[in-house]
């Protein structure tokens, strides 16, 4: 039997280095889109964001699957029917997972790391929470399962945004509010 041709039999394509671009060795064209968006957030998130302004976290209860859901939605994606009622949750929870990031949103390097992760919110069903920052601790103190509490912006500075919570910090020993 004839020897088979190894595949892929070649690697067509021409590599371009950053130097080639900087030195204008290759022809290129450029475009910077200027576009902006404004999203209406819908009934569920309107209430959620409004309650954040009041310093409260709310979820929705689905009686059929007995979930208390946060972030809230007006329909349950499992039961595929309407959720039934609003439920006030605590502003405490536990760290479900986290990262210590030395990258900003454009993948640029930063010196002071961002502590970020998912918080499971107390009063909601297990594993139900949202992404947020952590603070008020050293990076090495952060761990999965850690009990945390929301640190809110001063009331007059809140604007109905997830950023009305500045970050989640460790629950103080003794469990009392400071």
């Amino acid at each position: 039997m004839a020897k088979k041709q190894a595949m892929p039999k070649s690697a067509p394509g021409t590599h371009v280095s950053t130097k080639d671009i900087v030195n204008k060795k290759i022809a290129y064209t450029w475009w910077e889109p200027e576009v902006q968006y404004s999203w209406s957030v819908g009934p569920a998130m309107s209430r959620f964001l409004e309650e954040l302004k009041n310093g409260k976290i709310v979820g929705r209860k689905c009686r059929k699957c007995r979930r208390v859901i946060v972030p809230p939605r007006m329909f349950c994606e499992h039961c595929y029917g309407p959720t039934d009622e609003w439920v006030y949750l605590k502003d405490t929870g536990s760290v479900e997972t986290y990262s210590i990031s030395y990258l900003d949103a454009d993948a640029r390097r930063i010196k002071e790391p961002i502590l970020v992760g998912v918080v499971s919110i107390d009063g909601a069903s297990p594993k139900h929470g949202f992404m947020h920052y952590f603070g008020g601790m050293k990076p090495e103190e952060l761990h999965i399962g850690m009990k945390v509490k929301a640190v809110w912006k001063p009331k007059e500075e809140r604007e109905g945004s997830i950023r009305d919570i500045i970050y989640f910090e460790p629950v103080k020993k003794g469990g009392r509010k400071k």
């Binding site: 990262s99 990031s101 990258l103 970020v116 992760g117 945004s161 997830i162 950023r163």
Partner: peptide, 17 residues
């Protein structure tokens, strides 16, 4: 756009978490 983008996320965060 409502809950995640205000936190200026980087995609690597997802994988890290």
């Amino acid at each position: 756009p409502i809950l995640d983008r205000p936190l200026n996320p980087n995609l690597v965060w997802l994988f890290a978490m």
